[in-house]
Design a binder for these strands. Structure first.
Lengths: 259, 259
DNA sequence: CCGCTTCCATGACTTCGGGTCATAGCCTCC
DNA sequence: GGAGGCTATGACCCGAAGTCATGGAAGCGG
């Protein structure tokens, strides 16, 4: 009944196109090298700018002058500011490691220990690599709904964290309940992990962006433990083992019974 | 080490001030009636506009002409577009019912049944009242990070859904685990409920904004059930009862044993 | 009833930044 | 070396947020 005004499909036509248009150059079978290289340069510079200033405060002219090219040139590579940011966002997100990219030793320990591994590394990874994380943050919470829509489509399509594979791994190991829709498990994980990591991250990246959790590193370990405990109960099988490594556990073999 | 560029405290000075400045009028003890009334009118009109067009596409001039006043006038009431939207957002969010505002009959049934009650009503409430919900959506995902920051501060301060009280209620009834930090429970709930409702809502409000969950009403009931089941395991006590009302249950009394 | 003060509405004006376009240069291939 | 089409350029446009000097209205003291 009400009118939803969202610019329809053709909105990001420029963006998607530029991403999907391989070489439609004349009859050259080879792709023009310059073009791709330039695009990449622009994306890299733009990423820094967006990360430093946020989406709205970033100026196309600054990005251009940072590259010592004309503003207009950027618009020949990327249809719009939105389009450029979208490319930046994709690049940033693609640089994140999938969950299953943990060391073999960690992989063996099972689903929740893998989660713990990544959560514990969150801070470190952030500090080594803050730019893409900030882009991720900006993309998720600091743009227009229209762009957000496009971003979500991308996330669904690419699943950069590899949730699907990871959850299947967990289910096949018997670490995760098999009586739930996979979809539901993935959703729950995405939602909570995103926000939990945001909470961990933004204490450093953007204090005050997210609610609560005022404490510092001391409690961090404990918080992660508690969070994993909750998750384990929610979607894990009742082996009740990964849950509390009371002090520091060793009995980790029985777990391999593979459901 | 890296530079976080966020306009500092004085950023929304105009906004906060305008909200916090009661009557500093001359020596009239009474507040000027005109001013408040006008502010309200503007906020109401602006809310419709923002809801219909989104944040960026909403034009201050349209809002003004919708009210048949000059654009400049709006800027005398609200320092900026951001400021106006923030007021709109606050008004929208304040109009939502707290969780504990369920009918007494529902309240008796315990924490998770209250959740179920509200989830089941989500669609209905949306349709009766889509404007503030859309404002909520826009505020959460469709603005700048700077604004988002302010919004979060507001949400923390006001807790419009009354999570704190609601969770305490749940704990005191023995519906919720008491071995977790209250903070953790509240966070988990906020995160998942927000997103779950978003998923339910945006199917209607903004298809494609959120990931997955393609199905329709048929499955909705089942999804709610599954979601509550997961939540129950995660943060609920093991009374294991609220969980599965197998078909359509009647035995709802035993629950009152109050832990 | 008159001047005075304070608030408020006005709309023309400024500023600023995203996006455009005609033009010129350049590269590759024939 | 000529032709055809990519690509860079920067002056330009346009739209929208935000400003400001002005005039008017409403209350107050006398």
């Amino acid at each position: 009944m009400w009118v939803i005004v969202l610019t329809p499909d053709h909105f990001m036509a420029g963006v998607s196109t530029s991403a999907l248009t391989p070489p439609q150059y004349r009859r050259h079978p080879v792709q023009r090298p310059r073009s791709e290289g330039k695009r990449l340069l622009i994306v890299e510079t733009a990423m820094r700018h967006f990360a430093e200033h946020g989406y709205h405060a970033a100026r196309m002219s600054d990005i251009a002058s940072g590259l010592e090219i004309a503003k207009g040139s950027i618009f020949q590579h990327f249809k719009s500011k939105d389009g450029l940011f979208f490319e930046v966002y994709k690049k940033a997100v693609r640089s994140f490691p999938p969950y299953l990219d943990a060391p073999a030793a960690v992989l063996q320990k099972g689903f929740f220990e893998i989660l713990r591994y990544w959560l514990a590394r969150t801070n470190q990874m952030l500090q080594e690599n803050w730019v893409p994380y900030r882009i991720y943050l900006i993309g998720n919470y600091g743009t227009d709904l229209v762009l957000r829509r496009e971003i979500n489509r991308f996330l669904v399509a690419e699943d950069p964290y590899g949730w699907a594979a990871f959850v299947h791994y967990g289910v096949s190991r018997g670490d995760l309940r098999s009586d739930l829709d996979i979809e539901m498990i993935v959703s729950i994980l995405e939602w909570t992990m995103d926000r939990f990591q945001d909470a961990l991250l933004t204490e450093a990246l953007d204090p005050g962006l997210f609610r609560r959790h005022g404490q510092v590193l001391e409690k961090k370990e404990a918080r992660i433990q508690q969070f994993l405990d909750v998750l384990q109960r929610a979607i894990g099988t009742a082996t009740a083992e990964t849950k509390r490594p009371s002090t520091n556990p060793k009995p980790r073999e029985a777990k391999r019974k593979q459901r």
